[in-house]
Design a protein around this nucleic acid. Structure first.
Lengths: 137, 137
DNA sequence: TTTGCAATTTATAATCAATATAGATTTGGG
DNA sequence: CCCAAATCTATATTGATTATAAATTGCAAA
């Protein structure tokens, strides 16, 4: 079945592959739109009437702890989630609200102030107007 | 008096130079520790007993609207403020909790996915262990 | 100065996403 | 199939921030 990948990914992390978790991870991997908890909940609730929003919160937190997804806090008061965990930045268009991925330079620290530090996590957020929404010259 | 700079900065933005605003801006400029609303409130309340926390919220929001400071949302659930508004990134040490400024590369977008976009605001957050807290080899 | 009005501040109440809790259900090994 | 552990669900709670409206302050004109 098409959820095999998700089951394997969950097992590989040593966490239980419950039905809600499989569906949430699958949704996140198939919808690279950086959805919020609410968006995920609304989308899945239709076909899983017993799903609780708490389970979405819990699952996403567990996924994050195990590197299966990351949080995108580009907007105040709305946490988005992304199953693409390789290094990349997020651009939010203030016109159409889309969140677009982009690549970042190999090194984000351009001075020596943090020489010798250990980097655990990097977040790069850019806000502006995307090419599609920008009035052409 | 030493608050002249703040009065001028506020007037230049076209916003009222009330006593609370002068003191809050002054505190922010003299304490480059990226304080939270609570930290600012506690620090100033001592010498301004009538100060309301709402005023700190209001003032910081007005300052942000006029480019006098920026918010640093490097931690979930805690907004910090920074009167240094030139482009720079923020590093948070997970051991000592300090937030350290660093410079960022001239261009933060390393691919062509956003060619033609308008950039309004950039935030670069790095979490890890700072040189002081890292056990030396 | 004094006056008057708009801007600002203050206190209180309301909001709302996220967490805590505890009982119910599901999962997976034997 | 059974059972203990993991997970899920519903409800209550939290806590930072916003909303509201009344009180106060700032400031410019008379």
């Amino acid at each position: 079945m098409s959820t095999n990948n998700e089951v394997l990914a969950l097992k590989k992390c040593g966490i239980g592959a419950s039905h809600p978790r499989i569906r949430i991870l699958q949704y996140l991997r198939e919808n690279r739109t950086h959805p919020t908890v609410d968006e995920i909940y609304i989308a899945l609730h239709e076909s899983m009437p017993s799903l609780s929003k708490m389970t979405v919160y819990n699952s996403l937190n567990v996924f994050m702890e195990h590197g299966l997804c990351r949080d995108v806090r580009i907007e105040e008061g709305q946490v988005r989630y992304d199953a693409f965990v390789d290094d990349h930045g997020h651009f939010k268009c203030e016109k159409c609200s889309k969140v677009i991925d982009f690549s970042t330079p190999p090194s984000i620290i351009a001075d020596s102030s943090l020489k010798g530090s250990v980097i655990k996590q990097t977040d790069v957020f850019v806000r502006g107007i995307c090419p599609d929404c920008k009035p052409s010259v």
